[in-house]
Amino acid sequence: MQLAVLILEDERPVREALARDLGHFGGHVRIEVAEDVPDAWAVIDELDRDGDRLALVLADHRLPGTSGVDFLVLLLDDPRTVHTRKVLVTGQADQQDTIRAVNDAGLDRYIPKPWNPDELRSVVRDQLTDHVIEHRLDPLPHLQALDAARVMPLLRTRGDR
């Protein structure tokens, strides 16, 4: 089982830049990109088939046809993604959207564009760590994508073998 991060962004250069900035995580977590909401669902189906777990979604706010917030709200209705951490990466979101994202979609973080790559990575690391801790997942396969110091207590109760 791999943890997966989904980048939902309609603009190709931005999508590529996000994926590249998260390249460090490659090999430790699965990075997937989607350009629109239907493709995002296709990715979720594929993750499910592969037995991987969507731990984090980075969604743009402005998407063709629907808003990123709407997608994040929908994630709550799917058992495969109900526990997925949600981050909005956007250059613009009015207060209304932000409030809705926090209240209705359980938004975990908000990254303004343009982003600082280190900050982006740190947010992703934190969110993945939160996800692992919250669901008491085995951190060892993903340890390099996580904040190791924070997940160490999970290992304490593990016992020798």
Binding site: R12, R15, G26, G27, R30, E32, V33, A34, E35, D39, A42, V43, E46
Partner: peptide, 22 residues
């Protein structure tokens, strides 16, 4: 420009060839 779905398909082909997703 190719859709993200197409890119995934390409990656799947390569994955089948080299046996490693990353």
């Amino acid at each position: 420009p190719s859709s993200t779905a197409e890119e995934r398909e390409q990656r799947r082909v390569l994955e089948a060839a080299v046996g490693d997703r990353e």
